[in-house]
Design a protein around this nucleic acid. Structure first.
Length: 465
RNA sequence: GGCGCCUUGGCGGAGUGGCUACGCAGCGGCCUGCAAAGCCGUUUACACCGGUUCGAUUCCGGUAGGCGCCUCCA
């Protein structure tokens, strides 16, 4: 079991995870007001793979990614779609699950929804009111920021410099401008509401996560994650609510950087599509995953046609390796099945391959440095292409499995019979030195989507990528 | 204005006080009937100015430029 270190947003320092207790990870999931885009997929991928890595190292791990299905934007979007907001949110939640399923990384251990957590939210709000940290005002409930001295410690700002913004028409209900809503009374046009001691209404965003995290992981847990855009106010407010209520809350705050459009205009005509489902359709799941781990999770990541095509090329290089070095892919099962750590891969493989695996794992243990880890994979691929490295294919499969790319070893499906016949016909033509005919057949195969590769072992049909 | 981050070779993107990141693309070569795949080689790399140091891309200060958050946002 390696010591795993993570850069903590709160302290600014690198923190070592406690190996003696379950590593509870809570990552903020999407608000389901539309299909998710490639940027939303980043935390899903990062935290899913981080949890997978921890498990492979022997850490008892529990990953929770919530779904925010109560939100202003949902009311707006549902109205525009001419649909009830509850139905709309349910449909978008299903779409989210479907899209992220296609990433092939399995599901989190729990995916709580705000709508299923309202009872706990009401309890926590009542508790905060009792403790003097919140107050009811005109059917709304607000958090009294001045009552929590630690406010601002995560985002490193002073309350004087902050502005919580104003909920429409609610400004006058607050004691202070920087107070934020915990509960909102039902407004015109809102078709969902819940009963509470303060009347019919709905929970505000920040309190949902405080309650879902605690319900799934307890009052104190190892890692709270999410996009860096959530540091303020969302995560700052979560800390205020939970700690003011006497909960120790998260030990380490782990934030992923944003996916941006790199100055390119984000449009379909430019080819730099945005939605996760579109990226999956166009580039395939392996390329999407490879792209999302191509930079360090904390750094911004530029999205565009070029970075995606590079990911496709990278992934193709790995496929080509396995075409030459087939290995038992079924050793790794992706897509929802918990991976059981096999025998220690380093000692199991040993030698140069083992050293690469060790380097790979060390990189992941060091603030989850996926680009450095992938460099080890490519180093071993090059070495094994050059000379025979014992256990290299298995070692590479093992590493790729940890980042959700084991399927690259699956091999190609059998070409259809007609293509196979044409390939043999081409062989006859080549044997007869009729290269014109051979090339003609190769062109025909190309139009069918196959590339012919001649090797010492004979020709092979490879689907064009 | 406040807080934080970034500036690495054609592009993407790690990292380090002195030693090849890695990938993509280009060019030359090997292999091949020709290709593809693979292999070998290759193209002013660390924004600028000072400082610390035997030595800085890597630490400190400043300059320029870019980005994120400060309203909802992964």
């Amino acid at each position: 079991m390696r010591e795993v270190r993570i850069r903590d947003t709160l302290s600014g320092a690198v923190q070592t995870l406690d190996a003696d207790h379950e590593v509870g990870i809570y990552a903020c999931g999407p608000t389901v007001y539309s299909r998710i885009h490639i940027g939303n997929a980043r935390p899903f991928v990062v935290f899913s793979l981080f949890a997978r890595f921890l498990r492979s190292e022997g850490y008892k791990t529990r990953l929770v990614i919530n779904v925010t299905d109560i939100n202003d934007k949902i009311y707006t979007a549902a109205a525009r779609a001419g649909e009830g907001s509850a139905q709309f949110a349910a449909r978008m939640t299903a779409a989210y699950v479907e899209d992220t399923d296609r990433l092939g990384l399995g599901r989190p251990d729990a995916e709580p929804k705000a709508t299923e957590t309202v009872d706990g939210i009401v309890e926590l709000i009542a508790h905060l009111i009792e403790g003097g940290h919140a107050y009811e005002s005109g059917g709304d409930v607000y958090f009294r920021v001045r009552s929590f001295s630690g406010y601002g410690k995560l985002s490193n700002r002073r309350p004087e410099d902050m502005d919580q913004g104003e909920e429409s028409g609610s400004a006058s209900l607050k004691e202070e401008r920087l107070d934020f809503a915990l509960w909102k009374s039902t407004k015109e046009g809102e078709d969902t509401s819940w009963e509470s001691p303060w009347g019919a209404g709905r929970p505000a965003w920040h309190i949902e996560c405080s309650v879902m995290a605690e319900r799934e992981l307890g009052a104190s847990f190892a890692v709270h994650g999410g996009g860096s855009d959530l540091v303020f106010p969302h995560h700052e407010n979560e800390i205020a609510q939970s700690e003011a209520a006497g909960r120790p809350f998260a030990h380490v705050w782990m934030h992923n950087g944003m996916v941006d459009s790199a100055g390119e205009k984000m449009s379909k005509s430019e080819g730099n599509i945005f939605q996760l489902s579109e990226a999956l359709d166009r580039y395939g799941r392996e390329a999407v995953v490879a792209y999302l781990i191509s930079g360090h999770y904390r750094q911004p990541l530029a999205f565009g046609k070029l970075p995606m095509e590079e990911a496709v090329a990278r992934v193709e290089r790995l496929r080509n390796f396995f075409r030459e070095h087939p290995v038992g892919y079924t050793a790794w099962i992706e897509g929802g099945v918990t991976l059981s750590p096999t025998a220690d891969p380093v000692s199991a493989t040993g030698g140069p391959a083992g050293e690469r695996v060790a380097g790979f794992l060390d990189a992941l243990a060091d603030d989850f440095n996926t680009p450095r880890a992938m460099a080890e994979v490519f180093e071993l691929v090059s070495e094994a292409n050059r000379t025979d490295i014992p256990n290299a294919p298995a070692a590479i499969l093992h590493m790729l499995g940890l980042v959700g790319l084991a399927s690259l070893a699956a091999g190609d499906e059998n070409a259809d019979a007609a293509a196979e016949r044409m390939m043999l016909e081409r062989q006859d033509a080549r044997a007869a030195k009729d290269f014109a005919r051979a090339d003609e057949i190769r062109d025909e195969l190309a139009s069918m989507g196959y590339e012919v590769r001649d090797s010492a072992d004979g020709p092979r049909l490879v689907p064009k990528s």
